Simulated scan of single mutants.
Amino acid sequence: MSTFLLVHGAWHSGRAWERVVPLLASAGHRVFAPTLTGYGETVHLAGPEVGLDTHVDDVVGLILAEDLRDVVLVGHSYAGLVISSVANEVPDRIAELVYLDAMVPEDGETAVDVMPVTQSLIDAALSSESGWRVPPMPEFPPPAGLFGVTDPADVAWVRSMLSDQPVRCLQQPVHLDNPATTAIPRTHIHCTGGPARVEGMERRPVPPTQPNGTPSRVWEIDTGHDCMVTKPAELAELLLKLG
């Protein structure tokens, strides 16, 4: 039995994994899919003080409270930043880091360093009436859709879980200065079925060698960004190779 900890991306909630969790659990694994502070059922906690560090604390707190070990830690999109800093905090608890169509940072980097277009979201939030709210990305015509989701029923479901992102999440740096993190294996899963990425949103190339010195592992799913919604079985199948 493995332990999977699935961390959702910006604007989403733990509900995003509802189609994946039972597939992993039915294979005999333990699965956690928490909602980070300020989203979904915790949206009332959102505010200008909530940031990347808050979300790192959410995940580290869950790992310690449940005494989780040998965790396959999956981060989707923005949560690539989250899982990186989590691994820095508790490297002895993490068996594998999975970057699911995610931001892959270096030590000290923010979301802007990884994906420069993020700066425009920060500027808009700081100049808005609230001064901190980053609204979800809009729905685009197919094949882009809403985070790569185009089926009308699925679009409505995804939209029902979306909430604003606190701008501080995009401003705080990742911490990856613990040498023990370099030993943790990494897997990258790329969603390749969406439209070509716009300037500033390009995915960083995965280097041929992981930080631990082994060859990099990159898998692909032919679908849009929210693959846990559009291709849950295919995603679960890949994750089960790690479990």
Rank of each mutant, 00 (worst) to 15 (best):
D58P: 03
G61F: 09
V74G: 13
G47Y: 13
D92N: 13
A46E: 02
V56Y: 03
E49I: 05
E49T: 09
V86E: 11
I83R: 08
G80S: 09
L81V: 07
D92T: 07
H55D: 14
D92R: 15
P48C: 03
V72S: 08
V86A: 08
A87S: 12
A46G: 11
L68D: 08
L45K: 12
N88G: 08
P91V: 04
L62V: 08
G51L: 07
D53K: 12
D92A: 06
S84V: 08
V90C: 13
P91W: 12
T42F: 10
T42S: 13
V82A: 06
D70A: 13
L62P: 12
R93L: 08
L64H: 04
D53E: 15
E89I: 01
V43M: 06
L62T: 15
G51H: 04
R93N: 14
A79C: 04
L68T: 04
I63S: 08
V82F: 14
P48A: 10
V60P: 12
Y78G: 03
E89A: 15
V50H: 10
T42D: 03
R69V: 01
G75P: 06
G47Q: 03
E89G: 02
D57Y: 00
L62I: 13
R93K: 15
L45G: 00
Y78T: 10
P91K: 09
R93Y: 11
A65R: 14
L64Y: 00
T54V: 02
V72E: 02
S77W: 08
V74T: 14
